[in-house]
């Protein structure tokens, strides 16, 4: 078994990604708290981690679960619009169709949780379908479907 790298390397390499994902998922105001929860949960579990090959995916999965917890605990709230622009600009496959106007983030925030999560993970964190599936605890097909449904709904909303 390969040994795990010092936890500090996870912070050095992926802290920006985790904070970026969380800003997209829970908003700027709460992202830092969720960041703490994510890395503390990761640090607690780290020595027992069996497979250190995809540490980025592992961290983003934890971050995503924390974001879901956060939404469950506090209910859905509107999030600042500037966030979404940053998320979408950074995405590998930008949404086509309408421009990045005020309605986009609200539309993302209004999606059902699974679709919203799939969209945020795909475009906010640039995760492949398999990792989105791992994060959501579903099959890759189901992840693809959630993403597709979310995007379809967004296009309709914003048309």
């Amino acid at each position: 078994m390969r040994t795990l790298p010092p936890f500090q390397t996870l912070l050095d390499r992926y802290a920006d990604d985790v904070l970026g994902l969380l800003r997209g998922a829970v908003g700027r105001a709460d992202a830092e708290d969720a960041f703490q929860e994510t890395f503390l949960a990761a640090l607690r579990a780290y020595p027992r981690l069996q497979d250190g090959r995809n540490l980025r995916g592992w961290l983003l999965t934890i971050a995503h679960r924390k974001a879901i917890d956060h939404h469950r605990a506090r209910g859905r709230r509107p999030l600042p619009v500037a966030e979404v622009e940053a998320v979408i600009e950074a995405s590998a496959e930008p949404l086509d169709g309408p421009g990045l106007d005020d309605g986009l983030w609200e539309a993302v925030a209004a999606l059902p949780p699974k679709q919203r999560a799939a969209v945020t993970l795909r475009f906010g964190s640039d995760l492949p379908h398999a990792e989105i599936a791992a994060a959501l605890g579903c099959s890759p097909e189901a992840a693809r479907r959630s993403l597709h449904e979310g995007l379809t709904k967004l296009r309709k909303e914003l048309a």
Partner: peptide, 26 residues
């Protein structure tokens, strides 16, 4: 790394120390 990230890491480090999770501090 952005300053926001650096600040978040500082806070995390303190929380990790408070929880006794710093098995090796350097």
């Amino acid at each position: 790394m952005t300053t926001k990230t650096a600040r978040a890491i500082d806070r995390f480090r303190e929380a990790a120390a408070a929880e006794g999770l710093l098995d090796v501090a350097y």
